[in-house]
Design a protein around this nucleic acid. Sequence first.
RNA 1: UCCGGGGUCGUUCAAUGGUAGGACAGCGGGUUUUGGUCCCGCAUAUAGGGGUUCGAGCCCUCUCCCCGGAACCA
Length: 564
Amino acid sequence: MSDTPSPANAPDTPAAANFVRDLVRADNQQGTFGGRVQTRFPPEPNGYLHIGHAKAICVDFGIAEEFGGVCKLRFDDTNPVTEETEYVDAIADDVRWLGFEPGEPLYASDYFEQLYLWAEHLIITGFAYVDDQDSDTISVQRGGYGKPGIESPHRNRSVDENLALFRRMRSGELPDGSHVLRAKADMQHDNMQLRDPIMYRIRHEHHHRTGDQWVLYPTYDWAHGQSDAIEGVTHSLCSLEFDSHRALYDWYLEHLPLPGDQPRQTEFARLELTYTVTSKRKLRQLIDDGVVEGWDDPRLPTLRALRRRGYPVSAIRNFCEFIGVAKTNSRHEIELLEWFIRNELNRTALRRMAVLQPIKLVVSNWPQGHVERIELVNNPENPADGVRTVEFNGEVWIEDDDFKAEPPPKYFRLTPGSEVRLRGAFFVKCTGFTTDADGNVTEVQCTYDPATRGGNAPDGRKVKATIHWVSTAHAVPVQAALYERLFAAEVPGERTGDPFDDIRPNSKVVRAGVAEAALGEVAPGQVVQFERLGYFAKDPAGDNLFHRTVGLKDEWANVQKRTK
RNA sequence: UCCGGGGUCGUUCAAUGGUAGGACAGCGGGUUUUGGUCCCGCAUAUAGGGGUUCGAGCCCUCUCCCCGGAACCA
């Protein structure tokens, strides 16, 4: 472990064993990179970061931090048609939100000139050539799995001819798709990546940073390892699908006069979650189709959405540390993430009472006009959070769910004749109820026991339920956005191939409710617990809109499920 | 079809030739002024065959299954 002080948001979960950590430690012991550790987080600026990136960020930055090295944010901006500046700032902002310092971002596009020079070097040393066949032809010549490729008729152009053509490619006089630069590797290789891969393509496109300076753009494979080498990266950590690219990563590096040590690529499994999609394309489609309201819609797994929804950074980081790093393709249950969220919020969130589906409860024997001031603890898990006062005047809103005229089995709450505790106030006993023309309960009548003030009976009698309430005379309005999972299937799209077939209708429901007066003091972005309902984050834009971060564990729901 | 990477409780991560363990989920119980939290307990796993070894989840071998790979995407 590093002996630098932990940042405020550092996980408190003990560092678990994982193979990347072991590998870096072994490198340090053997002096592979002179004890140096440098990693990078290399997103393409073509979308917002999501929970899957959070894991990558935690691994990339975390490993560097742990071994006293550095991790830099580098934008892999080699494809001008998909990338936008809009995302650059947002990505750096999200990294910072996670509690890591990305520093001044780096860009692969800053290395275009060096890359170009190295490409000429490969041409001169006989390891690259210009091909002017079309992409279909090249594709066919590549062969297939178990079938060797055949060499391009242009594979053995002279160095001079290659150089001249390559310079014309750069000059802009040649049209898109007419020529490519290819590595001269091995058309018979079992690994298709080594069958003379494309290094450069011509694109007359405006680049978000280099503008119209280039028409020649490097491919990912040609840019990535070289960028790592230029920056002095030692451990290039990436996801599993690049496994078969590693041979090419190494091939390029071995054929170049590098300024320092040759970086090494190591692959690990990306984070997948049940009931969630993380592909940028699908996320974008959800937005474009209007299924959700934007990149920060709390139903999305984007970091912007999770932030708005009230997910604490520390919980996200604890989760990422806890799940570890492995090479197994896996999909974690979203319940585990939610457990980390609750675990954190249970310790930190202040308790408040809010009623989201109000029905009126009237205490018939309450002294006319009398108001009791009742003290409630802000957080039973943290006495330092102190107390607050709520007022009680014998007429309150209670949750529709907390009264049943005909109780199901094991129902502990209010029913005709039953006695419950109004949190912090009194025991009340149900004496009757009123319904409207459709049979819906509109009002519940009770009597209270004055001896139970504060919620304890001097005679020692117990109640089986405590319910929350809001004084009708002191209520403030609250809007609560309740979110269910966006998808109804653990693996969206598994059934039909299209995740959109598994979209759950009504994944967002907004309720207009009431809350105790103290809710008005909650700051934008702050998360509080609505007692017995869940954790809710006040929308950053203010007003009185709250997003449900996550519900409380609901044993009653399990009971109902079991008795069904 | 060829190459590569994987396969341990329901899920996921450990165990690095020496008692298969944790967490979440589930189930049961206790505490409780949140059917929350907390506490205690229960059940469930080394894909299969052969081999090496005193001893194998781990090493060898064969088989099976899953994932990735033939963009001028990353």
